[in-house]
Nucleic acid binder design. Structure first.
Lengths: 338, 338
DNA sequence: GTGAAAGCGCTAACAC
DNA sequence: GTGTTAGCGCTTTCAC
């Protein structure tokens, strides 16, 4: 079932069919109707690979670090909502860990498949590599703070978000506030990575409040395992922190497990806060104080920016959402606070 | 950078290059080395779309209902582990809800992109549609109980799993045990769907223990929202159930929230059990009794079966894993049990 | 063992 | 407004 079959069936040229398929300029209404009828009748669907040889694939490639973080689902929903009506389909690939090599392989897989646009979510790649990719394919980078003239950026203001958490804990009366962050791999400017911004903001706010001596960092990863491991280390300190700010909700879940396992209670002995406001964090049993960044809006915006670039925009755009703090039962004044 | 460039650079024909690329029969060792050197030197990567026109894409398409269920991540990891070394790349598309129309659209997107194989996870499509897809592309269906001669099946023995949960609750002394299940859309034989098997097994085991009068079903969906909604309905019954078996962990999380919101405790007032043994269920704060099905093995097997089919196998294979029960703190004897 | 050449299904000049 | 036709980069006969 090819475009030639449709053309024969409708008694027109393949050009006409191609134009109807792409809603291109220069087809009469009668022609359109005739061709469309033939398409419907034959149940024809264009061959994506053949299209890719010459024109568009109507595909947006999404690079996800992994599919375990429910926050990514919000982003994807927003993206799909935006690009679907324009006839685009999102395909996802998993980066597989924080190894930039693996990530590069995954993003190359998208490039090789001739996607029309790429959305990378919190990539660990060096900026130069991202620009190389952006130079060849319209690209939106989500969750990084570098400024590029080659690709668009969608990000949450992590400095605001981290500040909200630390200020909240300090206002509750906490002084020994610890933080769990994710290691960066040392390539490129670290200040571009959201975990670095969150961690530095934590240190800055602590210092501003005269709590520099109480700064305690655990460098693991934004995963449940990372949160668990980090919390175990932090809880072993003497004196023990009274609050733990995990840089991501996933890590906060691991922290909750570690606290519980140590025979301590939340928030009685330890307050815990996260970042992302994943849906599960809202559940009464977890009830995690967290920073809400609107993933759906971020996804929709990424989609819009990609469509604009595909249509020809070449100037770079940077879109930042301002996060808000959602306080729940996992944070409370420290024991002994009057 | 095309195959012609490589051929020119190595002073050979494009045929030779193509053969080296595909590890095809009939190239001398010297030729292979020369061509490989040119490939490496030029940093050449084959154009996937051009390949797709004639041969393989080295791509496996995965249809996911959504990316919120962490159990799917285990499956995907297993799949990647299996197909990666063979040079295959997994790409995922989201079905977007339980609407079979949406699901069909998503799977067609994979077919249009000429993937070499398709893995559908817990699809809601009619069997006839799955067979149509399987007829055109090697297909593995994960999580359905229909028997097909056209596609392979990978499943967990849901009858065993559901029985383990209900027997466990009964052994603890519960009698008023309720169940939250997912609606099916009425297409095709319902007995093919895992939610139907789990629900019917629940009814059967209850009946076998003389508890037919205590059967209480809430038909919502395997999501947090579905679990929350279903639990609210069940808790409104008089007399109230003492245990709720949610057909999936996601739904169990919603159930926990609803129970908590009703001012009741788990497991003091209500025992809660799930199915899937997602990682979060292990966390001390949730500590959900659940059924473990080994997602990694299921994913690896699906990958192996797909590669076999791509290599030419035409007979259908059915692979079933036997689940186990993991008891945690969310289930306990009912209040008033001596 | 190696290479020339046809053609996969589509898009886009360009001619009519 | 419509049709003819030359490729896109690769794989695959089929000669040599």
């Amino acid at each position: 079932m090819t475009i030639t079959d449709v053309a024969n069936h409708a008694q027109v040229s393949t050009t006409a069919v191609s134009k109807v398929l792409r809603n291109a300029y220069g087809v009469s209404e009668a022609m359109r109707a005739k061709v469309q009828a033939a398409i419907d009748e034959l149940g024809y669907r264009p061959h994506a690979a053949a299209r890719a040889m010459r024109g568009r694939t109507f595909t947006i490639g999404v690079l996800l670090p992994h599919i375990r973080n429910p926050f990514f689902a919000d982003i994807l929903d927003g993206l799909t909502e935006q690009i679907g009506p324009a006839g685009y389909q999102a395909i996802m690939v998993q980066a597989g860990g924080t190894d930039p090599k693996e990530e590069r392989r995954a993003v190359d897989a998208l490039v090789d498949r001739q996607v029309d646009g790429i959305l990378t979510i919190a990539p660990a790649l060096a900026k130069a590599e991202l620009e190389e990719i952006g130079g060849g394919t319209p690209t939106v980078v989500l969750g990084r703070h570098d400024r590029s003239a080659v690709y668009d950026s969608v990000l949450d203001d992590d400095e605001v978000g981290a500040e909200l958490v630390v200020e909240h804990l300090i206002a509750l009366g906490h002084r020994r506030i610890a933080h769990i962050t994710q290691a960066d791999d040392g390539r490129g400017r670290a200040t571009a990575l959201l975990q670095t911004i969150r961690a530095r903001t934590y240190e800055r706010v602590m210092t501003e409040h005269g709590l520099a001596d109480h700064i305690a960092l655990a460098v693991t990863s934004y995963t449940e395992e990372g949160g668990y491991e980090g919390a175990k280390r932090l809880l072993a300190r003497t004196p023990r922190p009274t609050a733990i700010f995990a840089g991501a909700d996933q890590a906060a879940y691991g922290t909750l497990a570690a606290v519980h396992e140590a025979g301590l209670t939340v928030p009685g002995d330890i307050s815990v806060a996260g970042y992302d406001n994943a849906r599960i964090s809202r559940l009464a049993h977890i009830s995690l104080t967290s920073v809400d960044q609107d993933g759906a809006i971020m996804g929709r915006t990424a989609g819009r920016l990609l469509l604009e670039r595909i249509e020809g925009r070449t100037s770079a755009v940077r879109f930042s959402v301002t996060p808000t703090l959602v306080t729940r039962r996992s944070t409370a004044p420290p024991a002994g606070a009057s």
